[in-house]
Nucleic acid binder design. Structure first.
Length: 424
RNA sequence: GUGGCCUUAGCUCAAUCGGCAGAGCACUGGAUUGUGGCUCCAGAGGUUACGGGUUCAAGCCCCGUAGGCCACCCCA
């Protein structure tokens, strides 16, 4: 029982595990670049207001799950660790006058998010997300582009059976009227509502739609859907999004009960699930359009859309699906020596090889040659450079650890030989 | 934030009715002194998650706390 351990809901990514992460994050960054989304970064904490206004005061994310930082003085600004990335990216868009850049501004970012929630498998207090945002494009084509990008990412990291659920939740033109109809629907059945749902009817009636309470199934079956109550503009937009998805040959499911948990979403909303593993906890990612967000945070009215993919869940799901871990890259060679104490010679030779761009470990522990070779093999190195008495003649032994063959090599020939081996 | 199950060495797990805390793997060293994965030997590693209580005696029984997992809730 160590005195200290990682805080609840956080974890250490040790080298064996981190190699898989590096690969997954590289896949994400490469895809973003290939699709024309440029990498950027925003702070991991912001004025709490950015999230309160951006994500929404009434959302669980802000109300219950936000990591607020204790102010150091009375006058200090109220800060919070970011529970999601979009609000900060939009804040940066406004701050740096990106509306003067060629529109749309397409960006991508990877980093940790923080939510003070009770941990569970697939749910952490610190987790990493890949975010992709297109700000300044009203769609509908870019909506389909993003949905397809997410699906390609899952496929590229080895998750073949991810499906996307799509919905449209309207905009300020049609949502108020729809909400009124929805609330009326529930009010007429108020006596049948569970206590929790009755309370939510006041704060966030949309959420009743995806309630998993069995008592709600019958009530929701007859509830009006946002997709059926869209205004002409939203209806046209949603139809065009579907046309674009069809044109790309993407299989998707329209899910009228799909409601996103953050207030800023308008029109297109989508979530990714591993097939057959639906249910909120299993969401691998999600996103949607946020046409009102830039204005809400103090900018000019600007449409936007983006998605967030939870990398922890992607990696968890990947290994549950039997995908092999990515092994850490082993050194090409390890420099070992007959004289355990001759560490300076081993270090000097390794340093020269590294200066030539080769991945080389030096065995600097003062143990006998047999142990050094044993460690080199366990390291996965392909070669051992063996330093012994021949060094006086400018020679070392180059041993092939797979074939167990060995030959003397002039010190100055070592770099070209190893370069050739590394290349082939 | 609510309820349930769990916690013994770095990891996976033993320990009979409450009676001297162990094994395998991993780690370090050795096997007559310059050659690896196997084998053999040895070593190190524990306040049994933490804090109380009951008892002659607690890893085991009771209470609390922390952490993990599961179901809610919610998100990714």
């Amino acid at each position: 029982m160590p005195a200290y351990r990682s805080p609840r809901g956080t974890r250490d990514l040790l080298p064996d595990e981190r190699a898989t992460w590096t690969e997954v994050e590289r896949t994400a960054a490469d895809l973003a670049a290939r699709y024309g989304y440029r990498e950027m970064e925003v702070p991991i904490f912001e004025r709490a207001e950015v999230f309160e206004r951006g994500v929404g005061e009434g959302t669980d994310v802000v109300e219950k799950e936000m990591f607020r930082l204790v102010p150091r003085t009375e006058e200090s600004e109220a800060w919070a660790l970011r529970p999601e990335a979009t609000a900060g990216v939009v804040r940066a868009y406004i701050q740096h006058g990106m509306q003067t850049w060629p529109q749309p501004v397409k960006v991508s970012t990877i980093g940790p998010m923080f939510r003070y929630d009770r941990p569970q498998a697939g749910r952490w207090r610190q987790f990493r997300q890949w975010n992709v945002e297109a700000i300044g494009d009203p769609g509908p084509a870019v909506d389909a582009e993003l949905i397809e990008l997410g699906l390609r990412f899952y496929r590229d990291v080895g998750l073949d059976d991810v499906e996307v659920l799509v919905n449209s939740i309207g905009d300020p033109a049609c949502r108020p009227a729809y909400l009124e109809r929805l609330v009326t629907h529930y009010r007429e059945r108020e006596g049948l509502l569970p206590e929790l749902e009755r309370r939510r009817l006041e704060t966030n009636p949309l959420r009743l739609l995806d309630s998993k309470d069995p008592a709600m199934a019958a009530i929701n079956a007859t509830a009006p859907h946002a997709v059926d109550a869209l205004c002409a503009a939203c209806g046209d937009h949603f139809a065009a999004v579907r046309d674009h998805l069809d044109a790309l040959g993407i299989r998707y499911r329209i899910e009228p009960g799909l409601v996103r948990g953050l207030d800023y979403y308008t029109r297109t909303a989508f979530e990714y699930y591993r097939s057959g593993a639906e249910g909120q906890q299993q969401a691998l990612g999600g996103g949607g359009r946020y046409d009102g967000l830039v204005e809400l945070l103090g900018g000019r009215p600007t449409p936007g859309i983006g998605f967030a993919i939870g990398l922890d869940r992607v990696i968890l799901t990947r290994s549950e699906a039997g995908a092999p871990d990515v092994p850490p890259t082993p050194p090409l060679a390890v420099v070992v020596g007959a004289d355990p104490d001759a560490t300076a010679a081993r270090l000097r030779i390794a340093t020269d090889l590294r200066a030539a761009g080769l991945a080389v470990r030096a065995d600097l522990a003062r143990r006998k040659l047999g142990r050094q070779l044993e460690a080199a093999v366990k390291d996965g190195a392909r070669f051992a450079v063996i330093v012994g008495d021949e060094l006086a003649d400018g020679k070392v032994g180059l041993r092939d650890l797979d074939g167990a063959s060995q030959k003397p090599v002039e010190l100055e020939d070592l770099v070209p030989i190893l370069r050739r081996k590394a290349g082939g």
